[in-house]
Design a protein around this nucleic acid. Structure first.
Lengths: 201, 201
DNA sequence: TTGAGTATATTCACTGGACGGTATACATAC
DNA sequence: GTATGTATACCGTCCAGTGAATATACTCAA
């Protein structure tokens, strides 16, 4: 065959993505990924050095699209900063109602591999969440919020909390509750539009 | 030997608890649990019908002590409701700095077994979190907070969010951030002590 | 234009080990 | 002499990773 490397690689990653996300890392064998991709395990091992490598590639491939999705949800929501933040949670709740939804792949991987803190996949997950947090912070700061850093962390906590809680209870309404909380915190952090001097901590 | 059933059972659960919490469910073999408990796998299977049973027993054994710990942290913190809520997070941050800390066993199990939503262990985890949420709600309501139900959910989201985020970044300071957010939300929900009529949503 | 040689890509068949669970037998306590 | 409890040894399966061979595309000299 000798197709260009990237095609096969991406087919493998696509297969891995579906399986790892749906059944967890340790719940999916390399054979299963190869079968889903329509090739032999040996071929898979030609393109990836190890299962750990494959897991890292799976998460790396989800990094940018995930971020872009959140940013789109934010951009497409009408209204002020609090509304737009709440919009992210509303969209998330909607997507969590899809039957194939299984929480956040990054968080689930970090939970599953908690005993291997140095695992490349965990580093990728951590970097992903940091990117999101930074984007929030910059958004807040350019929206006139002084302590954008703190608010960004709080929103992130609510977001990841809703991933965890909704995965456990299978009740996406928690995401709407999280959205309300996020809105409250954002409103409280917003400058009062009247007096505007120090107002710090 | 023929020791009373409960002794051996509890020794097994204690061993399982350490191993499952530290290395995850699928990362620990039944043999490993038996070895840690100082007996044979066959003996273990005399006391538990399957690994799934054992996993459920592991979480069931953590239910009450965990709840009691949170309640103690709440009770032992001086001050008003917001302070006491923040106290939970502060204590949690302290415990998360212990080298053996690996997040919340209930959440990690639900993440690992996400593809088996009916698994008994997940039901136990869900019930545990519901108990905690209910305790929060009752605490808030008897503290004079009208919408205690919503606030309880928000606090829970922050708490579980901090479990997830700290597990990923290995940075317990997120728990203090979550505690601040929890305090803010609690303060905002507290009656103004002055005008007190509707003030609803 | 072709054909030899090389790098890329894929397959089949296998290994060594771990894993969940069980058949059978033995020991102790009441 | 039967309930309970523990141990040895085993079964069938799955799983991450590999060795050896093969097939295809690419390069470049004749």
């Amino acid at each position: 065959m000798a197709r260009p490397v990237t095609d096969t690689r991406e087919r493998i990653i696509a297969a891995a993505s579906k399986l790892f996300y749906s059944d967890g890392i340790r719940g999916v064998s390399v054979d299963a990924v190869a079968a889903k991709a329509g090739l032999t395990k040996r071929t898979l091992y030609y393109h990836f050095r190890s299962k750990d490598d494959l897991v890292a590639a799976y998460l790396a491939a989800r990094d940018q699209p995930n971020l872009a999705l959140f940013q789109r949800w934010f951009a497409e929501t009408e209204g002020g900063l609090p509304d737009k933040i709440e919009g992210i949670f509303r969209n998330l709740a909607r997507s969590a109602r899809h039957p194939k939804w299984q929480g956040c792949g990054f968080l689930r991987t970090s939970a599953e591999l908690a005993n291997m803190p140095g695992h490349p996949a965990i580093k990728i997950g951590a970097a992903h969440k940091k990117k999101f947090e930074n984007w929030l912070r910059m958004t807040f700061e350019s929206g006139g919020i002084g302590e954008g850093s703190r608010l960004a962390r709080q929103i992130l906590l609510l977001l990841d909390g809703s991933f965890a809680v909704v995965l456990l209870h299978r009740d996406p309404s928690y995401m709407e509750t999280a959205g309300e909380a996020a809105r409250s915190l954002t409103e409280a952090a917003l400058p009062t539009r009247r007096k505007r001097t120090v107002a710090g901590r």
